[in-house]
Design a protein around this nucleic acid. Structure first.
Length: 258
DNA sequence: ATGCCGAACCCCGTTCGA
């Protein structure tokens, strides 16, 4: 079972890259973020033509999440329980016994921005949602752009970033509280050498200089963490012409267990 | 300290992203 997450920064602009990436990597599940496409315009046929079923929750210009999988997706839910949100940032579905969520956590903009407390509220709602999901089915996958670099080693220049949005102590505490509901950060805890940055700024030749952050994560419930085989960041996708600023993150599991 | 880039939508410069 190969599970991937990719913030594509506009599915329309990246559609050909997503197509070739699906053909090359052939994940069983692909979670997408920042599709930036209303549901009425979602390119369903791209996925169906490759043997995927796809569900989506989008809006114009900003945000937007989707899940594609090699088979039926059941019990699809949009958003987070108990958290009214006009922004399309969460989508969950059940596939082959796994509960999978595609998540686009708010950026926060800056620690003194009005968007920062929105981000922390969103993360608090996600923690409660994770508890509910885990109680229903511990085979849980939370995949997406969390907009948090959990540790200093997930930041190319920790001193320059200290205290700023994406690395601030309240954000990292919120990430840890999410983990503490019973999840394992697959790339952070299990992947060994597969751990690496997942986002590089478009500016200042950041990718060429490997000045990045690890902010895209795949969090696994314990039955899934126990079947972990490997995880990696597909940096090749970030090296393409006109790339997303994020690379796909991939986890392989020996699931279902023998 | 800021812009450095890129996407979207209209305001074709401004807003947002991370």
């Amino acid at each position: 079972m190969k599970i991937a997450t990719w913030n594509v920064n506009s599915l329309r602009v990246r559609l050909a890259q997503v197509e070739s990436w699906l053909d090359d990597v052939a994940p069983d599940i692909l979670c997408l973020q920042e599709t930036k496409v209303p549901d009425t315009d979602f390119p369903i046929q791209t996925f169906v033509a490759r043997g995927y079923q796809v569900v989506f929750h989008g809006q114009r210009t900003y945000n937007g999440v989707a899940i594609a999988a090699r088979g039926p997706l059941a019990d699809v839910t949009c958003g987070l329980a108990g958290f009214a949100d006009e922004q399309c940032r969460a989508l969950a579905a059940t596939f082959q016994g796994l509960r999978v969520a595609s998540l686009y956590v708010p950026n926060g903009t800056a620690v003194d921005s009005p968007r920062y407390p929105y981000k922390l509220s969103w993360l608090a709602a996600l923690k409660e949602q994770s508890r509910v999901w885990l109680a229903q089915n511990p085979a849980l996958v939370l995949a997406g752009d969390f907009n948090i670099a959990p540790e200093d080693r997930d930041v190319y220049d920790p001193a320059a970033w200290e205290g700023s949005v994406l690395v601030s102590a309240p954000e990292r505490a919120a990430f840890q509280a999410l983990i503490d509901t019973g999840l394992t950060d697959a790339l952070g805890s299990l992947a060994g050498e597969g751990r690496g940055f997942s986002w590089w700024d478009y500016r200042a030749a950041a990718f060429r200089r490997d000045q990045g952050l690890r902010i895209d994560h795949i969090l696994l419930g314990s039955p899934l963490a126990a079947t972990f085989v490997r995880g990696f960041v597909d940096r090749k996708a970030r090296a393409h012409p006109r790339p997303s600023d994020h690379a796909p993150v991939v986890v392989e599991l020996a699931w279902p267990p023998a």
